[in-house]
């Protein structure tokens, strides 16, 4: 029995844990046994608010706010190293992906979610990325005050990119068969929906 009189914080309310299980692939989060292999494996762990292990623990602990605001899923580069190594066979990348999807749907004004959304939209249009169009789309989505702030912060980077001809003013050519790409995307989305129509 510990002697210290530290106040115990009430945690582990089951509501959020249950809620998270309804997110695409979210049910896998329950199976984390906190071994930490993902955390030592993840190449982005230094930049993450929480390593995947800690992230799963917060889900178990019912810390909804911390989980939903964490940059962890957004910094996942889908390298699959954690998924390959997880002894419990949790498809961690898929869990992160499911959560990103959920966040993008729910909070389109949020910075990273918006970035992801605009990126995808720009990409689908030509099958290639048009940096300037992408940046503009993102700024528009953010709204003028925020956009100004970001622009000022990023101006050095932008100028450097212009100098190195990495920020062309005209959009690149469409890829061949951009229509086919769209079809592939739609089919994948339909399959995804079909697979998860029962919620899990």
């Amino acid at each position: 029995m510990s002697a210290d009189k530290e106040q115990a914080t009430p945690r582990y309310a089951p509501d959020f844990h249950q809620e998270f299980r309804k997110i695409e692939n979210g049910e896998y989060a329950s199976q984390c046994m906190q071994c930490g292999l993902c955390a030592v494996t993840c190449p982005s762990r230094e930049m993450m608010d929480y390593t995947p292990r800690a992230f799963f623990k917060l889900i178990h602990a019912g810390e909804k706010e911390k989980v939903m605001k964490a940059n962890t899923p957004w910094l996942c580069t889908s390298c699959y190293l954690c998924t390959v190594r997880c002894p419990r066979g949790i498809p961690i990348v898929d869990v992160m992906h499911g959560l990103k999807h959920e966040l993008a749907q729910k909070s389109s004004k949020d910075g990273v979610a918006l970035l992801s959304k605009v990126f995808f939209k720009t990409f689908m249009k030509r099958g290639r990325l048009f940096e300037l169009g992408f940046t503009n789309g993102f700024m528009m989505g953010l709204g003028p005050p925020k956009a100004l702030k970001v622009t000022l912060k990023q101006q050095d980077c932008a100028l450097d990119m212009v100098k190195h001809k990495r920020l062309p003013f005209f959009p690149p050519k469409k890829i061949k068969g951009a229509g086919q790409l769209k079809k592939i995307y739609n089919k994948a989305a339909a399959l995804q929906k079909e697979a998860h129509k029962d919620g899990v």
Binding site: S2, A8, T9, R11, Q34, A54
Partner: peptide
């Protein structure tokens, strides 16, 4: 109520 020194969260937690 169970109070536990949560080794992973690193704090005293009450369930």
């Amino acid at each position: 109520t169970v109070e536990i020194d949560d080794a992973i969260l690193g704090e005293k937690v009450a369930v």
